[in-house]
Design a protein around this nucleic acid. Structure first.
Lengths: 339, 339
DNA sequence: ATGAAAGCGCTAACAA
DNA sequence: TTGTTAGCGCTTTCAT
């Protein structure tokens, strides 16, 4: 702290002096209270409270090697799905007395590696990354520094990093199967930028597994309501009208809903529409959006807990698969005989 | 860093030894390069690069008092408006080599004070808070510790803290005047939880200034699409149908749009609808949303720059008012004679 | 311009 | 159980 204030911060020695004990004892009541007599402990604690003593995080870090914060690298804050994830992450890390430093990567692997390095340089004890595809630099960095690092939003037990996430491929398939079951055969798929985004790539891969049974067309659009709305135009202007539109994220689907509405296309009368994510708002759109629920909140909690344990007790977590499940609402209906 | 890895991190001494200079010299090329001969400087720099030396942030902090990070306290991440603000804040702080630690307060002043204390304890050099109303604890904390702190999302030059934000009262008024100009006299106002949220309170205050000229009714709803959608029911079930609905945030307005749509009410034919915020998605709703643009992105940039300068050069920033302006789109139209 | 050395506030051996 | 003391890696006088 740039001690602008006159009197400098109270330190261990001040407390020790005031309590009539040694610095070691004060340090003990802070770090291993059981190693101190109850009597001295309470006395010291009183002095600590009275003097409003707060141990210097820096001094502590330099000795114990603990900084008590971890870093999270996410593509963007500007998407409710990550914001929700981070909210849960932060809350749960807090329960473990860990702070969270957020860095956004804009889905740029080089930027991601740089920011990760920055986080490590300032002492991050662990890292949360999105997905399993990262630059060689970042992988080397994590390897070399042996930083506890968890990959999220993706489940892949063959990944070198522990993954905590869902099966993106399966989630997409869940959606497409639902549309298939409803009789839709011609499906337009709208997805965010696939480059540098393995979650999206994996969802696309899932859909391709189904390509014999359905006729798929593809549109890439920037994530966001705008992107979804603009995609509507593309979907309807090229080729024959699809039976259904599958957006690989809910914001895209909401944007699509507006886009279609603007063009006079009714959902689900004219075509079915689905998303993936299940944002809170997806239940109140008109019609309410069928989607695949992705448990990002739980993902945040589990990632936080796993990372905290790894950092604190050096216990590397196992991969954790979270369940993604279909949510059928009003935006998807059985295909009418003469569409 | 809990040095799990075998060989420990390179330190200043290692560099000094390898370069054949003293630790002081190495420290100098790091912190005041001009105080060193070009020759030695380059030589030392080479060794630094070669050994991949990164100064310990903790050790640096303990000496210089600099931790190079600041904290931001926001009500929630789960609202695009804050996410956008933080994105800009983070980006711009990065340009000043400052990291950002985010803490969410859930609009709870006590929680806010606790989290602020936590941030300060771990060495935050500055703070960004939302609004100007805070617990006595927090005010005392900021005062006592003399932490550079900027209040955002609110402009009030009489505030003890420098404020960087817009005139919430005026922004709301801008919206209501627009509705008034279109001939609307009966306006339902939908706002988020007002308790503990001075931005909302100030917007409400603004509207009340206009209460002689318009007949205002009030509905409070949780922020989010859901909240907005549910508010639709309330707005239309109590009392006579309003000429227009003014939502004090865009997400609420979007939710309202869905809610109305679900009830068979057309915007803007049956009534006009406005928001405040101007989210990117607000331009693509159907109809596109009239709103008041709040420059949160610029706010993030300016807050970051101001805080960075305060922290680095001890220059307390002035209050900065950002311009909020009306955006007229399709959701508001002139009131028809026989509504 | 450079180096030697004294800390910064704390933790962790080690001793008592 | 408690105290003494040696660092941790760096910055910063103060000499040279």
């Amino acid at each position: 702290m740039t001690d602008v204030s006159g009197k400098k911060r109270v330190n261990l020695r001040d407390v020790a002096k005031a309590a009539g004990v040694s610095v070691a004892t004060v340090s003990r009541v802070l770090n291993s209270p059981n190693a101190v007599t109850e009597k001295t402990r309470t006395r010291v604690q009183e002095v600590i409270d009275q003097l409003n003593f707060v141990p210097s995080a820096a001094a502590r870090a330099i000795n114990s090697g603990r900084t008590r914060f971890v870093g999270a690298l996410v593509p963007t804050l500007d998407n409710a799905i990550f914001a929700r994830f981070l909210a849960a992450l932060e809350r749960t890390l807090g329960e473990h007395q860990l702070s969270l430093v957020v860095a956004t990567t804009n889905s740029d692997q080089e930027l991601e590696a740089n920011k990760a390095k920055g986080l490590l340089d300032i002492g991050a004890e662990g890292l949360i990354v999105s997905g399993i595809t990262h630059s060689a630099d970042l992988r080397a960095l994590i390897d070399r520094a042996r930083v506890p690092t968890i990959a999220t939003s993706y489940f892949d037990k063959s990944c070198a990093l522990p993954t905590i996430g869902y099966d993106n491929c399966g989630a997409a398939l869940l959606a497409l199967e639902h549309l298939y079951d409803l009789g839709h055969r011609r499906v337009a798929v709208v997805h965010g930028p696939a480059q540098n985004n393995d979650r999206t790539q994996d969802r696309i891969r899932g859909l391709k597994l189904f390509e014999q049974k359905t006729e798929l067309s593809w549109v890439e659009a920037p994530i966001g309501l705008q992107g979804g709305a603009e995609a509507a135009r593309q979907v309807l202007s090229h080729g024959p009208k699809p039976d259904a539109i599958l957006c690989l994220s809910d914001v895209l689907a909401m944007g699509m809903l507006f886009g279609l509405q603007g063009m006079g296309v009714s959902v689900p009368q004219d075509l079915s529409l689905m998303g993936i994510d299940d944002l809170p708002g997806s239940a109140v759109t008109v019609p309410p959006l069928s989607t695949v629920h992705l448990p990002v909140h739980r993902m945040g909690e589990q990632a936080a807990t796993a990372l905290a344990n790894w950092v604190e007790h050096d216990t590397r977590p196992d991969h954790q698969q979270l369940d993604a499940h279909l949510i059928v609402r009003g935006s998807t209906v059985r295909r009418k005989r003469n569409g």
